[in-house]
Computed example of a mutant assay.
Amino acid sequence: MKKIEAIIRPEKLEKVSEALLEKGHYGMTVTEVRGRGAQRGIALQFRGKEILVDLIPKVKIEIVTEDEDLDGIVDIIKEYAHTGKNGDGKIFIYDIEKCLTVRDS
């Protein structure tokens, strides 16, 4: 089993989620997060002054899946979260040693 963590732009969440549902991938956890990468923040204009926002709002999608579904899920995230600009996000993949269902414990 693998765990996918994808940090993407908030405005791309709906498209990514819909595409995953269409392909039969239902389970995910979504968290609102803030961070920065190569983008190093953005400058915004507010009441005539420039304000540096160094932690950009993002969403983190977490999905645990079987190994054989990994590439398909990653491809969906890459396709639907992509804009081609800095700040599109990152995808991290981890090995899962064990998964337990709380209901069955």
Rank of each mutant, 00 (worst) to 15 (best):
I4D: 00
D67W: 12
G72T: 09
E14M: 12
E5S: 12
I77H: 07
V16Y: 02
Q39L: 12
A81D: 02
I91P: 03
G89W: 04
G87S: 07
P57A: 03
K2I: 05
E62I: 06
N86D: 14
Q45L: 15
G35N: 05
G37L: 02
K3M: 14
I51A: 06
E11H: 15
I73L: 02
I61H: 01
R34P: 01
G87I: 10
Q39T: 08
V74G: 02
E50S: 09
T101I: 15
I56F: 02
G72C: 04
V59Y: 09
D104T: 15
E79D: 10
G37N: 05
K60E: 13
D104C: 03
V30N: 02
I76G: 06
Y26G: 02
I51W: 11
I51Y: 14
G35L: 10
K98M: 15
E97C: 00
L13C: 08
G89D: 04
G27C: 06
V59K: 14
D75N: 15
M28Y: 11
Y26M: 09
R47L: 09
I4P: 01
Y26F: 10
I91R: 00
G72Y: 09
K58Y: 04
E97H: 08
L21N: 11
K98Y: 11
Y94F: 11
D67K: 13
E32A: 10
Y94R: 02
K60N: 02
Y80P: 07
R40I: 05
L70W: 06
A38W: 13
M28A: 03
I96R: 02
H25L: 09
L13H: 06
F46A: 10
Q45H: 05
G37T: 02
V16N: 05
S17H: 15
D95K: 01
G87H: 05
K90I: 10
M1V: 03
M1P: 04
V64Q: 08
R40Y: 07
D69W: 10
P57T: 00
Q39K: 11
D67A: 15
L21H: 10
R34Y: 14
E18V: 09
L100R: 06
E22R: 10
F46W: 14
I42R: 13
I61A: 01
D75I: 08
G84T: 11
T29N: 09
D88H: 13
